[in-house]
């Protein structure tokens, strides 16, 4: 088998006309289920996103060719996304992967929320996030690759199974599951959702704000409020006091969404999905802890993330108190 460097060099002329070589091939950190590599062809900085060789991928993830098609569909609606340069075929020798243009900027929530560099653009970010989601939600699902559909009831069923499988006795989770099930909204027309729109998956630049929406692997069809609410979950605010990603207010998010053509979504519906989102992140913390408990991943990080479950419970209590 060719080395990755050789495979990317063989691909170079199709990435940048006239180029013959891929340089500075290096693995970037971050991205647990997919590998991310940076490299350069000619003058152009590129990113390779690929499934780890032999990796099964996570159960909910769409394939990489689907991701690439969704990014192109979002670009066609004017949403800020990286340019997909090439979707790899089997004969490329890279594996299941695609190549995109590198977008400069910052994804770390704590820096977006606190760093002076973002002070000027920060008040605009929530409105921009709303506008970008409206653009993504405008993609006609009929023109996109086939995706799973989920609504509040099916999400709750999925995460309750996770919770019961891990098996802790956590009364706040019990109360929250019951409360959310009793109020599960009916899904209208299924909308194409990003599925993981939050700090960490959005590239921000100090001069423009939202520069690119990344990590499309959890895309699915569902309730628009799910996407609007996920970035409001307290765990993604990184200490920021404002509800939207730590940097903005609900009204800015929803006004930005409507101004960009999104169908009006009530704050109540966003808060419902935010509550479901906190519960979902809590169940994900439990799953990550379970991989420690089973011996599959003995790292202190996996053990300690189990103690982050309580942060989602205190957020649930605050949301349930607000709703009463």
């Amino acid at each position: 088998m060719m080395t990755l460097e050789a495979a990317l060099s063989a691909l170079a002329p199709r990435l940048v006309p006239g180029a013959t070589e891929a340089l500075d091939v290096r693995r970037l950190s971050g991205g647990a289920s997919q590998e991310t590599w940076a490299f350069r062809v000619g003058e152009r900085d590129l990113i390779l996103r690929r499934r780890p060789p032999g990796g099964a991928g996570s159960g909910n993830a769409v394939g990489l060719a689907t991701e690439a098609a969704l990014i192109r569909a979002a670009a066609a609606k004017g949403a800020p996304v990286p340019e997909v340069v090439h979707v790899c075929a089997e004969e490329d020798g890279v594996g299941e992967a695609y190549v995109m243009g590198k977008v400069e900027g910052e994804t770390l929530g704590a820096r977006i929320v606190r760093n002076e560099a973002f002070a000027a653009v920060r008040p605009k970010l929530a409105g921009q996030c709303g506008a970008v989601l409206a653009q993504i939600h405008a993609i006609d699902p009929a023109t996109a690759p086939a995706l799973n559909t989920s609504d509040a009831a099916s999400e709750l069923e999925k995460y309750e199974t996770v919770y019961r499988t891990v098996g802790p006795e956590r009364p706040i989770f019990e109360a929250a599951f019951r409360w959310l099930k009793d109020r599960a909204p009916v899904l209208g027309s299924p909308t194409l959702l990003h599925g993981d729109f939050r700090n960490g998956n959005i590239m921000f630049q100090p001069d423009v704000g939202v520069a690119a929406v990344l990590d499309w692997e959890l895309a699915h069809l569902g309730d628009p409020a799910e996407d609007l609410a996920w970035i409001c979950v307290n765990s993604w605010r990184f200490g920021g006091t404002k509800p939207v990603g730590g940097f903005g207010d609900y009204a800015q998010l929803l006004e930005g969404y409507e101004a960009a053509g999104g169908k009006p979504v009530t704050l109540e519906r966003v808060l419902y999905w935010q509550t479901l989102g906190s519960l979902k992140w809590g169940c994900m913390c439990l799953t990550m802890y379970a991989s420690f408990a089973s011996g599959a991943d003995a790292s202190v990080e996996r053990a300690m993330i189990g103690r982050r479950t309580s942060e989602t419970e205190i957020d649930l209590i605050a949301l349930l108190e607000r709703a009463q």
């Binding site: 706040i172 109360a175 307290n234 309580s310 942060e311 205190i314 209590i317 605050a318 349930l320």
Partner: peptide, 25 residues
């Protein structure tokens, strides 16, 4: 509700005393 709230405040004080959600509540 009062029991759940009091319990989770005590738990987060142990797990993550600087968590923003603790200050909020």
């Amino acid at each position: 509700f009062d029991h759940l709230k009091a319990s989770i405040i005590d738990q987060v004080k142990i797990d993550q005393p600087n968590y923003s959600g603790l200050k909020a509540l």
